[in-house]
Structure formats: structure tokens, C-alpha cells
Design a protein around this nucleic acid. Structure first.
Lengths: 195, 195
DNA sequence: TTTATTTTTGAATCATTATTCAATTATGGT
DNA sequence: ACCATAATTGAATAATGATTCAAAAATAAA
């Protein structure tokens, strides 16, 4: 028999991230992804059910990673709520610093996935945000954060802000430094704009 | 000769907003838009160059409206910066209360337009945000807002937060009231989450 | 009414690409 | 070396849906 030549599924996934980031999901051709991955077009279908499935797996891996990191931070005993919150922001920025193309796909292709796989997507999104909210609740209990917060709203507020900033950064990295964005998000979220 | 039967271009535009909102741009068929607009498929091409052009016009009209309203608020002499800011938030929420489907298209199809028409899109987006930033600068001058704000970052922060909340509201209106979202955005942006 | 002109129509065409699959190639065991 | 099996290939197929266009319908003017 014959053995596999390497990690084609990983190659394809990584190629897809690059291609989706550059062209967007709909303008990305399977043949292009195959080319970038250095495999034949047909091979893509050995490892993935279809084009959709590729995007799905990219998001699944990403959510998986984000969720576990967040859970670890949220459930830790050492840090104060405010520091946990800080660390959560850091974590997401570190991840995207390492892989800007992934950031691009993450912020841009959400919508497509929601239309085709809303349930699955929402489930992961909620699980992820819940860990953040866990920390906020802790902070409300101990007086760090305002008890008037509407958590159902705040979760989308902060996520939207981060997502949009990452998007604009990925699009035009020279306009901002990720580090600067990260610090500003922390400050704005904590203190707002008033003097 | 023959006269036009009505405002087919307006009908098509309105139908497209509905259809795009429900299915997303890529899954929206011209034939479906035509059906909803009560015109023949071919008629769409009398009024619009192609599918892309329809989306483009939806956004152009919207930006036009948003920009003029924002400019009026920003350049007014009566209100204080903080009140202008309030009014700007109100304006956007009022607009989307009137037309939730438009909100959906606005928040979801940005990305597609950016890939195909980035320059035009960015120009409108920037013009719009600049009016908001004008007010923030005013407020920094008179001491209402913190002079440490990084405006290049804040503009994307607030826009992203609003966009994501509108998206989630449009997707599941019964989870939130728009009025509640609006108040929370004002509060969070002004004061942050700290106690 | 008839005619000239413009609008409207929707089935046929065309283009694009996702997907399939028969052929080919590589590997490990015998 | 040869065989059996699995992996890989990429050209052919199929499906979708945007776009076109020749025909039909409606209107206003003559």
C-alpha cells in the first residue's frame, strides 16, 4: 500500500486561510487553495467534504483554541477580575499577531458561516463569550465593575469593537500597531471616553 | 411611446434589501429579487448594471443619509459635545428601527463591498466617521472627553460595537430592545465598565 | 385607430467553478 | 521484482445562476 505524503489536511487548511483572507470566501477557488497547498484540486475533496467544510473547520479549530484559553483564564484562582479581563484581551491579540490572515478570515467570514451554519456558530460564539462574562460577573460581585452592566449587551459590544479593530488593522496594518489597539481597548472598555 | 409603470428602480432596491437581508448577498438570486419587486428578471438589468451595482446603490444611499445627518449634528452650534454624541447614537438607531432589513444588509455586506469596491467604501466610511470624530475633538477641547483618546482607534471601536449589536439585534430582535441597546452603548462608551 | 417609440418580459445563453472519478503513481509487504 | 492497496491527480462533468436579447406589450402622439 501507499502512505500519505505529509499533512495534506493541515496544508489545505493553512492554504485556505491565506486564500480566504486575500480574496474572501466566495471569490476563493478550490483550485487556488489546492495550488497554494501544493496539492491537486481533487485532493481537497479527499480531506474535506466541500468548500464550506473547509471554512467550518477553520472556525472550529479557532473557537476551540479561543474557548480553552478563555476558560483557563476565567476559572483561574490567582488573578483579580480586572487582570483576567486584561489577559483575555491580550490572548486574542497575541493569537492574531501570530496569524494576521486568520484574523482576516475570522472577522470577515463569520457572516457566511452564520447563514449556513447558524446554530453551530452561535453555540461556539456563546460558549466563548460566556467565559468572558463569567469574569465580568466576578468583578461585579467584588465591586470592580459596575453592577448596572447589561451583560447580554456588553458581550456583543466588546466583541464587536475588537472584531472591527482587528479587521481594520488586518486590512491596513501600517495604520496601527496591534499593541496600541490592545491598550486602547482596555482603557476604553474600562473607563470610557469621558474626562 | 410608453411610460414607466412606476418606480421600478425603487421597488427593486427595496426588494433587494429584503432579499439580501434574508439570504445574504451571495445566496440572493436576481430572479428572487425580481419576484419580490414584482418585475421580470430582465427588468433588473434595465435599472442596474449588475447584481453588484444594486448593493452599491443601497450603500450609497445609506451613507449619503447617514453622512448628512451626522454632519448636521456635528456642525450645529446649539448642543454640547456630549449631547451631540448622544444624538448621533440616537440617529443611527432610529434609522435602523425603521428598517431592520437595512440594518442587516448594512452590517453584513460591508465585507463584500470592501473586497470589490474598497476605495469607494472606505471613502464613505471615513467621511461618516470623521463627523463623529469632529464632535469628539470638540469635547476634548472643552474638557468633556479625555485628551488621551486615540481617535484613529476610537472611531473603529465605537463603530464596531454598534455594528455588532445591531447585527445581533436584527438576527434575534426579541433578545433585546433597541432602546436598551442604545442606552447601554451611550453609557459604556462614556463611562466604561468600572464601578 | 394606427403608428412609433419605449418599457417590460422571461426563456435561452453563457460563464464560472464546485465536484467527481477513472487513471496514475507511490508505498510497503511478500 | 511484483503485487495489493491506498493516495493522488487533474481533466471532464454538472450545476448554478448572472446576464442577454428578441419578442411582446403598453402608451402617447398623430
Amino acid at each position: 500500500m501507499r502512505t500519505k505524503e505529509g499533512n495534506k489536511d493541515k496544508d489545505i487548511l493553512e492554504a485556505a486561510v491565506k486564500v480566504f483572507a486575500e480574496y474572501g470566501y466566495h471569490k476563493s477557488k478550490i483550485s487556488k487553495i489546492a495550488e497554494v497547498a501544493n496539492v491537486a484540486t481533487g485532493s481537497v475533496y479527499v480531506y474535506f467534504k466541500n468548500k464550506e467544510d473547509i471554512l467550518l473547520r477553520i472556525f472550529e479549530e479557532l473557537w476551540e483554541k479561543l474557548f480553552h484559553e478563555y476558560r483557563k483564564i476565567a476559572r483561574g484562582k490567582e488573578l483579580q477580575p480586572a487582570n483576567k479581563f486584561d489577559k483575555m484581551i491580550d490572548m486574542i491579540f497575541d493569537l492574531f499577531t501570530e496569524n494576521p490572515a486568520l484574523a482576516m478570515v475570522f472577522v470577515n467570514e463569520q457572516n457566511h458561516l452564520m447563514l449556513t451554519n447558524e446554530d453551530q456558530f452561535t453555540k461556539n460564539y456563546d460558549k466563548f463569550l460566556d467565559e468572558g462574562i463569567f469574569v465580568i460577573k466576578e468583578g461585579i460581585s467584588d465591586g470592580t465593575f459596575s453592577k448596572d452592566l447589561d451583560l447580554a449587551i456588553f458581550r456583543h459590544y466588546i466583541f464587536g469593537a475588537i472584531r472591527n479593530l482587528l479587521h481594520n488593522w488586518a486590512k491596513e496594518p501600517r495604520n496601527f500597531t496591534l499593541n496600541n489597539i490592545r491598550q486602547n481597548i482596555k482603557y476604553l472598555t474600562m473607563n470610557g471616553i469621558k474626562n
